[in-house]
Nucleic acid binder design. Structure first.
Lengths: 144, 144
DNA sequence: CCCTAATAGTTGAATTTGTAACTAACAAGC
DNA sequence: GCTTGTTAGTTACAAATTCAACTATTAGGG
């Protein structure tokens, strides 16, 4: 058995990342859950459409790495809430272009505000250089 | 509506953390899943017991912030695999001391090795200073 | 054209997780 | 020593996620 005393699970990167992700997501979840009855998957789909404009479910999957069934169900839920509409693409009728409704855009704008504040709050303890490094490192680890 | 063009979900910290956590956990999961048929919760419980020695389910919960039902089920599964044993504490019979069996220790030793390598691999692209900063930042975000 | 393969998206069943209610053991106040 | 409250851990049920199979549509030979 190799020497394990110097290896602590609490500094194991995947573990740390999970803890940090869990902690930060949980605190933010309150906003979209309480105010709009949305799930994390729904919030993510909404956010992608709000930020990048109309796109297909498949495109959202490529960007977010969410599984297509998750997206499919989130889209159905958002449609039911009348936050988005679907439209078949005429050139390839397998694709459905998803577009936020006015109501969807309003929710996006509201949550965007909250997200920005929360992000700033999370980053506040770090210097500008540290923030930049942290984000670069995370992007690299996420293989974005 | 506030100006949103400068706010990108892809640099929203909870989102980035989730992506990075997902990516890094997924790659590692292969080892304990494929080789030992364990779930993430089981792996974590095993790792805590391996690293810190016998303790109660409650103590694991305090350290890992896992919910007690998750731990309860993970412990039951690990017991079934004969990787740990339970023992009532005589001074307070509500507590159960969890101890890795020889088999459990062997699995821990094996996975510990893999985890260490994988951790090193994940951190390789970063300088020593960057690594330290990254871990400190994550610990802070995780409120550890 | 027709047959096969590939892609977008959906659905159902099996797993996994979260919530809340539960049992069992202890502790403290009266 | 009985009632009330608290803690460790389990379990039942509901909600969410994953996996695999499915439909519908397009693309590419032959």
């Amino acid at each position: 058995m190799a020497d394990q005393t110097d290896f602590d699970i609490r500094s194991f990167l995947p573990y740390l990342l999970n803890q940090a992700a869990e902690e930060s997501s949980l605190a933010f979840q309150h906003h979209y859950k309480q105010r709009y009855g949305m799930l994390r998957t729904e919030w993510r789909v909404l956010f992608h459409l709000g930020r990048y404009g109309a796109m297909t479910a498949n495109a959202i999957g490529a960007r977010s790495k969410m599984h297509k069934t998750k997206i499919s169900r989130a889209v159905a839920a958002l449609e039911k809430k009348r936050y988005l509409t679907r439209q078949k693409v005429e050139t390839d009728r397998r694709h459905e272009l998803l577009t936020l409704t006015r109501a969807g855009q309003a929710v996006y704008a509201d949550l965007c505000e909250v997200a920005r504040d929360y992000d700033a709050q999370l980053l506040a303890p770090f210097s500008t250089e540290e923030q930049a490094l942290l984000k670069r490192a995370l992007e690299r680890l996420a293989k974005l």
